[in-house]
Amino acid sequence: MSATSSAARAWAWDGSLESLLILADLALSAGSWPGSLRSPQPPEAGLFDEAEAGEPCGADPRAAEGALGRLRARGGPLYGLCLEAWMSEEGVEPQLLSLASALGRGEAGAAEDYARPETRILRAACSRVEREVHRLQGLARFSPRSDGLYSALLEPDHNVLPALLPHFARRFGGQAFALVDLRRRVAYLSRGGRIEALSGEEAIALGPDRSDEDAQALWRGYFQAIENPARRNPGLQKRLMPARYWKHLPELARIGERESV
């Protein structure tokens, strides 16, 4: 872990991506960080009063934008790692800040050096995120709603919707679409070139609102016909596509489950 000047006070982090970017930028420019994170004080206790000079104090969007620019310009892979570390929800922020400090001290190549424990742990979490993003690019299943919107329900292990958005925006062209994360109760709606984030009931309400049985039946028929019975290997199928994703796949979900959606 990074060498720090004396026993500096733990940095406050509110869990947001914006404030993580600010912290990573700070660690990068200082070449050090205190070595631990704490939750911020509740606002009524006076978050702004308590903030020390140079200590980030929550998710100020303008500060985050500045941090983002600097990370992209000087941080090499650090910006991408920040996003993935945050999406992973695995608590690897300390490893991220430790790596940012090393890069800030001029230890070029630290982000690729798997002999460093912080790189190894951080990268392992990030590659789980990348794998899930890539998987869901294929496994998200959309169906048309009565308002013409194409909507997909997902229950990802990691908070990957933000990484899926650019992929589907490019794929759908001008077609409006929504991604709904049932587990986190958040959704993104892409319409007319704009992206809107929703949460709670509003997010869930963006899910499919009618049956798409005709197209799904055609797809199931195709899926069954394309399998080669002489080569059956269900173990391989499960390994490549873990069963926890099957629920939202019309070709694999059981009929009862499908109709309850």
Partner: peptide
């Protein structure tokens, strides 16, 4: 509508893996 990317995407896996 539509785009393709160099890495390609798998959309499902049949019972033959």
């Amino acid at each position: 509508i539509g785009a393709s990317s160099p890495a390609g995407v798998c959309h499902s896996w049949t019972g033959d893996g």
